[in-house]
Amino acid sequence: MSTSSETETRPKTRARTSSPRGARLALRDATLGRPDSPALTGVDVDVSPGEVLTVVGPSGCGKSTLLRTLAGLLPPLAGAAEQDGHPIDGPGADRALVFQEDALLPWRTLRANVELPLAIRGLARTERRQQATSWLERVGLAAQIRQLPHRVSGGQRQRAQLARALAGRPRAVLMDEPFGALDAQTRAGMQDVLVEVLHGTGATVVFVTHDVDEALFLGDRVALLGSGRLTAVRDVPSPRDRTAHDDPARVALRRDVLSSLGT
């Protein structure tokens, strides 16, 4: 795939396993946005099964529009949005959305919130309660399963939202600045939780963020948006490795990304 400014390299082999296999997501020469105000034009990107693609760009550049198009909430104005080679024509149960606002139902306990996608799948009450409990334990909320959302912290609500998103066994997880409202320490902790709970799911992830360091920690590749276009897609050296923060290749990429953002 080529962008307007440089040629993309294909992602390297992932360390994460693929059970269930992640979805292949793609935009083909796509114009994205609303009919009266397109946000992005000529977008070509192919997200491999099991890949984590992070997306960065200045405010208002179309990051959320790109994510909502892949989610099936916004049809492309031109070109195509695809999953596994088929057009995305609306929301699907195998593509989960995670937002900055946790969107938990305030009258349901954390466990009852996580049970929702399992109930939609038709699981019996006992089974969905067991699975919801297991997911909450995986994100470190074993002691809070019976709490209502307003009784726990923002970071804990985001953990519960992540558990709810993954409980439905989606093949793709689309995340729109999910940690943007958290303080730096909680944010770093949530990044580590995300890496840990994704391990072994095989899910494809598209993660929108305005934080360059977050993008370079989480992503196998990082997509750069600006001036109404996808300007580059770059491989990230040693993704999800905290010790690689000062690696010369990572430092050089961070400098290039910040330059592309005009910062």
Rank of each mutant, 00 (worst) to 15 (best):
Ala142Ile: 03
Gly180Ile: 15
Arg21Lys: 09
Gln185Asn: 13
Val205Ile: 04
Ala252Trp: 09
Arg34Val: 15
Leu166Asn: 06
Ser227Ile: 05
Val195Gly: 01
Arg10Cys: 10
Val222Lys: 05
Leu253Met: 05
Gly180Asp: 15
Arg164Leu: 05
Leu225Tyr: 00
Leu104Tyr: 08
Asp241Phe: 00
Thr204His: 02
Gly122Val: 00
Pro49Tyr: 03
Thr209Pro: 03
Gln131Cys: 06
Gly219Ile: 08
Arg255Met: 03
Arg21Ala: 11
Arg10Asp: 15
Lys12Val: 14
Asp235Asn: 14
Ala15Thr: 15
Thr17Phe: 13
Gln130Leu: 15
Asp192Pro: 05
Ser238Asn: 09
Gly90Phe: 02
Glu214Leu: 11
Arg234Glu: 11
Thr126Tyr: 09
Thr201Leu: 06
Asp89Phe: 01
Leu27His: 04
Ala167Pro: 02
Ala26Thr: 00
Arg234His: 03
Leu104Asn: 09
Cys61His: 09
Asp46Ile: 04
Ala80His: 08
Arg234Val: 06
Glu177Met: 11
Gln144Met: 14
Ala112Ser: 07
Leu97Asn: 07
Thr69Asp: 10
Val205Trp: 02
Arg240Trp: 12
Pro49Gln: 01
Pro49Thr: 02
Glu101Ser: 13
Ala223Met: 09
Gly122Met: 00
Val152Asp: 12
Gly155Val: 07
Ser134Asp: 14
Ile88Val: 13
Ala30Ile: 10
Arg151His: 11
Pro11Gln: 03
Arg229Met: 01
Glu137Ser: 14
Ala184Arg: 13
Leu110Lys: 02
Lys63Glu: 04
Ala165Ser: 01
Gly90Cys: 05
Gly22Lys: 01
Val98Lys: 13
Ala39Gln: 13
Leu253Phe: 06
Thr17Glu: 15
Arg146His: 14
Ala244Gln: 08
Ala15Gly: 15
Leu73Arg: 00
Ser64His: 06
Gly226Asp: 03
Val236Asp: 09
Arg24Trp: 02
Pro149Ser: 10
Met175His: 06
Leu225Gly: 05
Leu110Thr: 00
Thr231Phe: 02
Gly50Cys: 11
Glu196Thr: 08
Leu105Gly: 10
Glu8Tyr: 00
Arg254Cys: 01
Ala188Asp: 13
Val257Cys: 12
Val193Trp: 13
Asp36Gly: 11
Pro237Val: 12
Pro76Leu: 00
Pro248Phe: 09
Gly33Ile: 04
Asp183Arg: 05
Leu258Asn: 07
Gly79Thr: 09
Arg157Pro: 04
Leu148Thr: 02
Met190Asp: 08
Phe99Ile: 12
Gly140Cys: 07
Leu32Gln: 07
Thr133Asn: 14
Arg128Cys: 10
Pro178Lys: 08
Leu104Pro: 03
Ser260Leu: 15
Val139His: 00
Val152Pro: 04
Val257Asn: 08
Ala15Lys: 14
Leu77Arg: 07
Arg187Tyr: 07
Pro49Met: 03
Thr7Leu: 15
Ala188Leu: 15
Arg229Gly: 02
Leu67Val: 04
Ala167Ser: 13
Leu77Val: 09
Val52Gly: 03
Leu261Gln: 06
Ser153Tyr: 06
Ala112Asp: 11
His150Leu: 01
Arg254Gly: 02
Glu127Pro: 05
Gly262Ala: 08
Pro178Gln: 03
Arg111His: 07
Asp211Lys: 09
Thr109Ala: 14
Glu8Asn: 12
Arg21Met: 10
Thr7Met: 15
Val236Arg: 06
Arg121Phe: 14
Arg95Ser: 06
Arg28Ser: 08
Ala80Met: 06
Ala81Lys: 04
Asn113Cys: 03
